[in-house]
Amino acid sequence: MESQRWKRLAFEYRRPGHYDWINATTLGVLLHLQPQVPEAAAVLVAIAALRCIRYRRAV
């Protein structure tokens, strides 16, 4: 069995477009209006919906 070299994690930042902002804002507001969703969870989901930080893996 050969040893395996692990590559560094490849994260990249992408500037969000207009539709990314619209989708994230809409999702954040809808989650904010739901009484059973904590405020912190709504903010984190809205940030994740922006899709500006991406993980790229080499195959």
Rank of each mutant, 00 (worst) to 15 (best):
L30Q: 13
H18C: 06
L30Y: 05
L9H: 08
A24T: 03
E12P: 01
P16D: 01
R15Q: 08
A40C: 06
R15N: 03
A42S: 13
T25C: 08
L44P: 00
R14N: 04
L50P: 04
P35F: 04
E2A: 14
A41K: 00
E12R: 12
H18Q: 12
V45L: 02
L27V: 12
D20L: 04
P35V: 04
T26Y: 05
A42F: 01
V37N: 00
R57D: 10
L33H: 09
A46V: 03
A24I: 07
L50F: 08
H18F: 09
I47P: 00
F11K: 05
A42L: 04
Q4E: 15
R56F: 08
N23D: 00
A10V: 06
A10G: 07
L9N: 08
A48N: 08
A49M: 09
L44C: 06
E2N: 11
G17I: 11
P16Q: 02
N23G: 01
A24W: 00
A46R: 02
A41C: 04
Q36F: 04
R54G: 12
R8F: 11
H32E: 06
N23Y: 05
E12W: 07
Q34V: 09
H18E: 07
H32T: 06
M1P: 10
R51S: 12
E12D: 07
E39D: 10
I22S: 07
W21T: 02
Q34G: 06
T26E: 06
R15P: 02
Q4H: 03
Q36H: 09
Y55L: 15
E2L: 15
I53W: 12
W6Q: 15
G28Q: 03
P16C: 01
A41F: 00
L31W: 03
E39I: 09
V43L: 10
V37P: 01
R14H: 09
G17R: 08
I53H: 08
L31H: 01
R15G: 03
Y55T: 13
V43H: 03
R51P: 05
T25N: 07
V59P: 15
K7A: 13
G28Y: 01
Q34S: 09
A49F: 05
S3I: 13
M1F: 10
G28M: 02
R14E: 14
L27T: 06
A41T: 02
W21Y: 13
I47T: 05
A49I: 02
A24E: 00
A58M: 09
M1Y: 05
L44F: 04
R8G: 11
R56T: 12
V29M: 10
M1V: 15
H32M: 08
R8V: 13
A58I: 11
Y13C: 09
L50M: 13
A24Q: 01
A49G: 03
L27S: 03
R5E: 14
Q34L: 14
Y55E: 13
G17S: 14
T25K: 08
W6R: 13
L50H: 02
V29H: 10
M1W: 06
E39Y: 11
P35L: 04
F11Q: 11
E12V: 14
P35W: 02
P38W: 02
I22A: 14
A49C: 08
D20T: 04
N23S: 06
